[in-house]
Each structure stands twice: as structure tokens, then as C-alpha cells.
């Protein structure tokens, strides 16, 4: 069985390597991507969207539909883990009492103090990454992951109860849904303002003191906030369900 697997893997690898030879060369200026798409994005991005970081403007605006469905994938993953693992019936909760390993008090003190000191800085940095995505690397997805990771750090350093007190089950679910809703909602507002879906230039009609270009920049920011909320809530949802076996009692 292992031999067959090895043969299949090597054959697939060779096929893929063979397929790569059809690609244009590394940084080939004559390749289709470098002659049509990249020059437009690199030269026109700042005039069309007022966003200096081209990656952000491509992610949020030019291929916004793709990003919206990526957010939906994260949301679907969170909901899938929740529906598969969550056990709320009383019979399941009583199943077997878990062994609790007590750690030494001085070790726990060091870990807890470091986690408590780290968490606010992580959250502040996450907000910076989200808000500054227009000018520097980062954006909604990365910021959302860091924001979720700060809650996961607290859940590991302290215990799950402490995080669940701050991020209740219902809150995580609502925030996860709200994130996707903000993204698609901004898209729908553009449709209601008689432009294409996710064409943020339509937002200049309702946002005060913005022209068509700044409206696209603001639209990207709104979309990034939605992505960050969805990613953060779903990461916390996945972690809580995985680590507590769906019982929401004790973490790792």
C-alpha cells in the first residue's frame, strides 16, 4: 500500500514539474501577466483607488469577489467545526470527568503574567495591521488572524472559561456572521446605488466628502473590517470547539 502511494506521489510530482515547463520564465517581461495585468495595477492603482499598497487594492477592489468568497470559506469552516464538534446535550456533557493535571504554581504564574502582558499589545497591533493595510503589508485577513490568536493565547495561558467569559458562544457566532454580512452588504449597497456588485465608487453618493476615488479606498477599508471580524470570530470558534471537544468546559 505504501509503495503504491509512493508511486502515485512521484508520478504526480513529475507531471506537475512537467507542467511547470509550460509556464512563462521567472519575471519574464513578455509573459501575458506582465504585459496586460501587472502594469495596469502597478501604474493605475494609486490613481484609481488611492491605495498605495497594490496588494491591498487588488485584494479588496479589483478581485473583491474572490476575497468575499474566501471570507465565506473561512466562515463555512468555522460553522462546519461548530456543527460537527459542539455537544450541548446534557447526556454528552456528563460523559466522563476529565483528568485535570495541576501545574506548578510558580510556572503558571510566569505563563499567566506573560500572556496577560502580551494580549493587549497583540490586539493593538492587530488593529494597526487592519487599519494600516492600505499603506503597508497586512490587511483584514492578517489582522483578523492576529486578533484571533490573542484570544487563543489567553485561552492557553489562562483557561478556556476566562476567554468564554469575554467571547461568549453567541458573540463569536454573531461576529462571524456579521463579518461576512458587512462584506456582502457593502457589495449590495453598491448594487442599490445603481453600480456593479462591489464597485465601491458608488459609495461616494452616500459617504460625506468623498469623490469616486476616495470612495473606493473607503470601501476597501470597510471590506477589510468585515474580513477581520469574520476571520477572528471563526478562528476563536474553531479553537474553542477543538480544544474543549465541543463541551465548552476545559481547554487544553
Amino acid at each position: 500500500m505504501k509503495l503504491i502511494g509512493l508511486i502515485v506521489v512521484i508520478a504526480t510530482g513529475l507531471l506537475l514539474l512537467w507542467g511547470v515547463t509550460d509556464f512563462p520564465d521567472w519575471a519574464d517581461p513578455q509573459s501575458p501577466a506582465s504585459t496586460h495585468l501587472s502594469p495596469h495595477f502597478l501604474t493605475e492603482s494609486i490613481e484609481e483607488t488611492a491605495v498605495p499598497n497594490v496588494v491591498t487594492s487588488v485584494l479588496g477592489d479589483y478581485r473583491g469577489f474572490d476575497t468575499m468568497l474566501e471570507t465565506t470559506v473561512v466562515f463555512a469552516a468555522g460553522i462546519a467545526v461548530y456543527t460537527l464538534l459542539r455537544r450541548s446535550r446534557r447526556k454528552d456533557l456528563r460523559e466522563k470527568p476529565e483528568m485535570i493535571e495541576e501545574e506548578l504554581p510558580h510556572q503558571a504564574l510566569i505563563v499567566k503574567t506573560i500572556c496577560r502582558l502580551m494580549a493587549p499589545f497583540m490586539q493593538l497591533y492587530a488593529l494597526y495591521v487592519i487599519a494600516h493595510g492600505h499603506h503597508s503589508p497586512g490587511g483584514g485577513f492578517q489582522g483578523g488572524v492576529i486578533l484571533g490568536a490573542s484570544f487563543i493565547l489567553l485561552a492557553i495561558g489562562f483557561d478556556l472559561k476566562m476567554v468564554l467569559k469575554r467571547m461568549r458562544e453567541k458573540t463569536t457566532l454573531v461576529l462571524g456572521i456579521l463579518g461576512v454580512l458587512i462584506f456582502s452588504g457593502i457589495g449590495m449597497v453598491c448594487v442599490l446605488l445603481e453600480k456593479n456588485f462591489l464597485d465601491y465608487s458608488a459609495l461616494s453618493a452616500i459617504l460625506p466628502a468623498t469623490d469616486i476615488i476616495m470612495a473606493r479606498s473607503h470601501g476597501i477599508l470597510g471590506v477589510e473590517i468585515g474580513v477581520a471580524l469574520a476571520v477572528m470570530a471563526n478562528l476563536v470558534l474553531i479553537y474553542v470547539n477543538l480544544s474543549s471537544d465541543g463541551k465548552y468546559e476545559r481547554g487544553l
Binding site: 503589508p137 497586512g138 488572524v145 492576529i146 490568536a149 478562528l235
Partner: peptide, 15 residues
């Protein structure tokens, strides 16, 4: 590709 590296560090190596 700093943006991709950032995502890889946060998602792949971290979470």
C-alpha cells in the same frame, strides 16, 4: 511577497 509571508507567519506558523 511580504503580504503572503505575513499571512504564512500568522496562519501557517501560528494558528
Amino acid at each position: 511577497a511580504v503580504d503572503v509571508g505575513f499571512t504564512e507567519a500568522a496562519v501557517g506558523a501560528g494558528v
